[in-house]
Design a protein around this nucleic acid. Structure first.
Lengths: 343, 343
DNA sequence: CTGTTAGCGCCTTCAA
DNA sequence: TTGAAGGCGCTAACAG
C-alpha cells in the first residue's frame, strides 16, 4: 500500500503533525532544520505523495484552478493553457481544463463539476457580450478571471490582447501599401474580440483620414472558414475593396480560398490580412500576413492575476490587462491595385 | 456556506447515510422510492453538490482518469479528448488532461501529480517505442490504456488506428493513378505510428507487385513541417518519384510548401498524400488528399476500454483495438507523370 | 430498507 | 519547536 503521512512521521520519529508542517511549503518555517531534513528524507525513502483529496478536505481548499475553454481544437488554446499551467504549477496549483464545445448545457455541467471540485479559481475564455447572468454563473463557483473574451460591461478582472493596437498596425501597413478601400470581415457581435477589432478598425481608419464605409464591412455569425468564404465573395463582387482584413486566421483561410475560387489573385489583385498568427498561417498560399498574439503570455498573465486574487494579494477589482500584439509581415499583402466590383 | 450532506439529510428527515445512498447512482437501489424522492428534492432545494474531495477520501477512489498528451496544439487531440470526456462523463468520471510538451521531465512531474490525485486510470498518448521503463512508469500510477501511440512490445491494452489499412488505401489510390515510384516521408522511429505506417507502406507496395525502394524513403527525426520540406527536397532532387506520401498532414504541409518553392507543381508534376485529415487539410493548396482518422472515436474507445478495466468488467490484458480509417480524396493526387531527378 | 458507527488521510487549532 | 486532539464531508461496513 501507498505510504501515508503517519508512515513518514514514524520513520522520521516525529508526530504526524510535525511531518505535515515540514512537508508543507507554508508551514515549513515552524520546524527545526534537523527534523525538516529527517522528514524530507523519510518522505523520499517511502516515496510519499500526499493524498490531494485528504489535503483538500482538511484544508478546505483544492489548490486547483478551473479553465473553461470553448473549443480545444482552436489552436490558440494550446499555448494559452501552457501559460496558465506553468504559472499555476509554479505556485503549487493544479489546473483542470474543461472543453465546453461552445455548448451552454455542457458548460453548465462542467461548471457544476468544477464547483463540486471546489476549485479555488476560474479562468474563463467563453464570455459572451451582454450575457447578464454569465459573469455571475462563474463568480458563483469561484473567483473568476476572464481571458481572451470578456462580457463587456462586467467589471471583473480580465486579460485580453490589444486589438486596437493590432488593427492600427494592420491598417497602417495597408495604407502604406497604397490601400484605401479596406474591407473587414467582422466576427459575430456576441464575441467581444469582434467588437474590439471592429472598433480598432474604425479608429485606425479615422486616424488615417479614411472614412469607414459600412458597405466594406461584412459581418459573419459564425467563426468558420466557410463564413469567411461567403463574406469574401460578397466583398469582391459587390465592392471595389483592394484589401480584406479577416476577423481571425481561420476565417481568413476561407477568404483566401474563395479568392482563389473566384480567380482573384492574392496579393496581386487583393491583399489579405489575418489575425492571431496560428501555426499554419505561414503554410497556406500565400503565407498570411497577420497579427501575432502571444497566447502563452496571455495565459500566464491570467493565471498570475487569478492567483493574486485567490491569495488575497490583490482584490483584482476591475483589473484589466491588455497585452501588446505585433504585425507579422508575410506575403499576402501587396501594393494596392484599383479594381471594380466583379458584378 | 455551502450545503453539506448532513443538511440535505436533515431537510429530508433521514440519516446522512441514507441521503448518501439516495444520491449515489450505484447505491440508489437500496433506498425506498419515497425517501429517494424526498432526498432528491431536498438536495435540489439546497443546491447540494457533493464535495469530491470528501467523496474520494471516503471511497478511496477519485472517479477521475488522467489523460497524458504530448502537445495539446496538435489538432487531433481536441476531438480525441472530447471522445474520452464524453464516455468518461457518462460513466461518472472526470478527466484530468495534462500536456507534457513532449518533455520527459514535465511528464514525470505531471505523473506525480496524477498519482497524488489518485487517478483511477490513465490514458497515455506519449508512449515511446522501445522505452523499457515507460509502460511501468504509467502502470505504477494506475491502470493504463495506450492511445494512438504505443510502446510496441508491451502487451498492455491499446487503441490505435489501422495504419496498415490506411497505407493500403493510399497506395492503391496512387497505383490506380498510374504511380509506381511512390516515396514516403517516414516519421521518427521512436513513434509507433511511424513504424506502423512504414510497415503498411511496404506491405501495400508488395501487394501491388511493387518493389519497395529504400532510396524512396526519407526518414525525419522530428514531426515538423520543416523536416517535411527537407525530406521533400531530397526526394525531388535525388529520385524520380512521382508521388510523395507524408507521415502526417503537418509534415505534408511542409512537403507542399517545398514543392512550390522548387517550382514543382502538385498534382501535375508530383502527387502528394497526407495522413490524419486535420481541419486545415482542405484549406491548403491544393486541398490535400489524406487519410481520415476518427480521433473522437479513438478517444471514446480508449475511455471505454479503460473504464472496463477499472470497473473490472474486463481485465484488459493485451486487448488491442484498431480503428478503421478512410481515404479522403481531394486535389493533391493526379495521374503519374514520369520525371527525372532534379539533379 | 434505514440508522449506527467508524474511519478515509490530512491539517489545524490548542497546549505544552 | 513539537505533540495532542479534533474534525473536514463523505462512504462503508454492520446491525437492526
Amino acid at each position: 500500500m501507498r505510504a501515508r503521512l503517519a508512515d513518514v512521521a514514524k520513520l522520521a520519529k516525529v508526530h504526524p503533525a510535525t511531518a505535515s508542517r515540514a512537508l508543507n511549503e507554508r508551514t515549513r518555517g515552524l520546524v527545526s532544520q534537523e527534523t525538516l531534513e529527517r522528514v524530507t528524507a523519510a518522505a523520499q525513502e517511502l516515496n510519499y505523495l500526499p493524498d490531494t483529496a485528504a489535503r483538500s478536505l482538511a484544508s478546505a481548499k483544492s489548490s486547483t484552478i478551473g479553465v473553461v475553454v470553448g473549443d480545444l481544437a482552436v489552436p490558440l488554446f494550446a499555448p494559452m493553457i501552457r501559460g496558465i499551467d506553468d504559472v499555476a504549477w509554479a505556485a503549487g496549483y493544479s489546473t483542470l481544463v474543461v472543453d465546453t464545445d461552445n455548448d451552454r448545457k455542457r458548460e453548465l455541467t462542467h461548471l457544476r463539476n468544477l464547483h463540486a471540485q471546489r476549485v479555488d479559481g476560474l479562468i474563463v475564455t467563453t464570455s459572451i457580450v451582454g450575457d447578464p447572468e454569465g459573469p455571475e454563473r462563474f463568480a458563483n463557483v469561484a473567483p473568476t478571471v476572464s481571458l481572451l473574451r470578456v462580457a463587456e460591461g462586467s467589471l471583473g478582472p480580465e486579460v485580453v490582447s490589444n486589438d486596437d493596437q493590432g488593427m492600427r498596425q494592420i491598417i497602417n501597413h495597408l495604407v502604406e501599401h497604397g490601400h484605401s478601400r479596406i474591407a473587414l470581415v467582422a466576427g459575430p457581435p456576441q464575441v467581444s474580440t469582434s467588437l474590439a477589432r471592429l472598433r480598432g478598425y474604425r479608429n485606425a481608419l479615422c486616424d488615417r483620414g479614411l472614412e469607414p464605409d459600412q458597405s466594406l464591412i461584412a459581418t459573419i455569425d459564425h467563426i468558420d472558414p466557410d463564413r469567411g468564404r461567403e463574406a469574401a465573395r460578397r466583398l469582391v463582387q459587390d465592392t471595389d475593396c483592394t484589401a480584406i482584413v479577416g476577423f481571425n486566421d481561420l476565417v481568413t483561410f476561407g477568404v483566401l480560398k474563395e479568392l482563389r475560387a473566384l480567380g482573384v489573385r492574392c496579393p496581386d489583385d487583393i491583399s489579405v490580412v489575418g489575425y492571431s498568427d496560428v501555426p499554419t498561417a505561414d503554410l497556406v498560399v500565400p503565407p498570411l500576413t497577420t497579427v501575432s498574439v502571444d497566447h502563452y503570455a496571455m495565459g500566464a498573465e491570467a493565471a498570475r492575476l487569478l492567483l493574486d486574487i485567490i491569495t488575497g494579494v490583490s482584490n483584482g477589482a476591475s483589473k484589466a490587462i491588455q497585452l501588446p500584439v505585433r504585425l507579422v509581415e508575410r506575403e499576402s499583402v501587396g501594393p494596392a491595385r484599383p479594381r471594380t466590383p466583379l458584378r
